[in-house]
């Protein structure tokens, strides 16, 4: 009896080990990194897999810092980030891998301030000074004049502000702090733009999802996430005052407007920041997000899969972006990228 159990357990184990091997031969590609485009990427890879069953691209949203590290170590086939790699990191990549890493913008998105303030139903308006002050820890109450000023008619409580930020190295954080650095000299001097800055205040939540989760569960909190996370989880998000002084709510049109100027003079390596861009309708906390692809991919199957996918993402894939609250890439950028794809060897 016992023997039987043992044997049947063994058989089960054997079946489990064999079952996946019987699936059809596939090209397996692994990517990891930014959570900002996570919903878009998983949707893309899912759709792409349905259309091309022989290619399976597994994307894990572990944060932009993780994407950069793992692609540099070569433990994943491609990385993804919301803040372009800096020159030191590019140098590291070159020393470790002996080739270059290419940045490919895939979509554009907006980072929005989300909050959970009891009794506030309308969308709050945030000035750059208010956001910087809150994240520097100088503004600590919801009814501070810096917040209350532009929100006439909204009854803000006198409660503490609970600041939530990312605990992992994050491109969303890069975009957020890049923006704060452009609008606040104190921030620039004290903290600066980074994927994992030394936060003056606040609680850490893991990934976009973790921040949204914390804000949702914590009364009086404020955080920042990529727009789609705020939309999907029904958290209120505020509008932000742009460089022209207008309060703009995050919309795809606003993101496209922010990218308009950059699109015309895109540098060869696509590393460009579009936060606090000029233009009346530009949403100020907008950004490209990039795939990080090594310039040399030894495995021919993987190389083909990645190249084909990139072409698809820049073509058909662009039509899926708006349903998930990401903005399409400007045409000039797509054209430039399609040329750059040939650099992958």
């Amino acid at each position: 009896m016992r023997m039987k159990t043992v044997i049947s357990l063994r058989l089960m184990a054997a079946a489990v080990m064999l079952a996946p091997a019987m699936l059809l031969a596939q090209t397996q590609v692994t990517g990891a990194g930014a959570t900002f485009p996570g919903p878009m990427y998983t949707k893309w890879f899912d759709t792409y897999h349905t259309a091309h069953p022989e290619v399976q691209i597994n994307y894990q949203a572990i944060g932009s810092g993780g994407g950069i590290r793992q692609v540099t170590e070569g433990t994943v086939d491609f990385g993804a980030t919301d803040g372009p790699m800096n020159d030191t990191q590019l140098g590291d990549f070159k020393t470790k891998r002996g080739n270059d890493v290419l940045h490919f913008p895939t979509v554009m998105g907006a980072v929005v301030p989300i909050y959970n303030v009891p009794g506030v139903a309308t969308a709050l308006k945030f000035t750059p000074a208010a956001l910087a002050g809150i994240y520097l820890g100088t503004i600590t109450k919801w009814n501070d004049p810096a917040i209350a000023g532009p929100n006439k008619g909204v009854k803000l409580p006198a409660s503490d502000i609970v600041v939530v930020h990312r605990s992992d190295g994050s491109g969303t954080t890069y975009i957020w702090t890049d923006y704060l650095s452009k609008v606040s000299d104190t921030w620039k001097g004290k903290v600066g733009a980074n994927t994992s800055p030394n936060w003056p205040v606040g609680l850490g939540g893991a990934q976009n999802a973790g921040v949204a989760g914390l804000v949702k569960q914590t009364e009086g909190s404020i955080g920042y996430v990529e727009l789609i996370y705020a939309v999907q989880t029904n958290i209120s998000y505020g509008s932000v005052q742009n460089a022209s002084g207008e309060f703009v709510s995050a919309t795809l049109a606003g993101v496209s407007a922010a990218a308009a100027a950059a699109a015309a003079k895109m540098p060869e390596d696509f590393r460009v920041s579009i936060t606090n861009a000029a233009g009346k309708t530009a949403y100020p906390i907008s950004s490209f997000t990039w795939l990080l692809v090594p310039s040399k991919i030894a495995d021919a199957g993987k190389k083909k899969a990645i190249v084909d996918f990139l072409k698809w993402a820049l073509g058909d894939g662009q039509n899926m972006t708006e349903a998930l609250s990401y903005a399409k890439l400007p045409k000039e950028v797509v054209a430039k990228e399609l040329k750059a794809i040939s650099k992958i060897q």
Partner: peptide, 29 residues
């Protein structure tokens, strides 16, 4: 997940194991 030293138990903190779990895959240098 907040690296700080606060006397209050109500304050968030961080532990050795937690920081490894959070940052190990993403330490960039």
């Amino acid at each position: 997940n907040t690296p700080q030293i606060k006397a209050s138990l109500f304050a968030p903190g961080y532990s050795i194991a937690a920081v490894i779990a959070n940052e190990f895959t993403e330490a960039t240098y």
